[in-house]
Amino acid sequence: MNAFRLAGDMTHLLSVVVLLLKIHTIKSCAGISLKTQELYALVFAARYLDLFIHFISLYNTVMKLVFLASSFSIVWYMRRHKIVRRTYDKDHDTFRHHFLVLPCLALALLINERFTFREVMWAFSIYLEAVAILPQLVLLQRTRNIDNLTGQYVFFLGAYRVLYILNWIYRYFTEPHFVHWISWVAGIVQTLLYADFFYYYIMSWKNNVKLELPA
């Protein structure tokens, strides 16, 4: 495993830790999109179907379990926890996320690395992850006071995607057989979605002012 991949996984993990810190410790999910969190739970459930079939490494298995458990527990907290769910900004989290699922499934049936159940579900999870951040970005645009933890959460998620692209470039040159067009194209699309956010995040950090996205 190269350094970009490890750094990418660590920023991904860090984003989850930041979000859990906000939810578990501060008991708030203000500014967090439940729709995005539900999509991520679905992404991990679809992608990690091979969890108990293919053993890759202990690291791989543990990380998969962490992402599965954390994504489902975040959804649980936002829907069911007595205090946390009251902080959920339902009125602004209006993105019709269900409409993302079917097109991603259709695309996965058409474009996959192999027409088997697990490969189609893998491609589906890749496509869905690429667009899963959209409800969150829309909610951020509508949020007046974006708190630091929410901003950091989205920043780390975006950083994870950038690092994965660097990881693919590295792997392309060091592992001649490593060609995964599906994840590369979807990953680049996914990263581009963060471009606007990154711009405003870095500007707010540079100018030491509160993060706010223009509507």
Binding site: R47, N60, E113, E119, Y164, H177, H180
Partner: peptide, 10 residues
Amino acid sequence: DLEPEAHDEL
């Protein structure tokens, strides 16, 4: 012929 490799990324 290149076979798709196992998905070893997260």
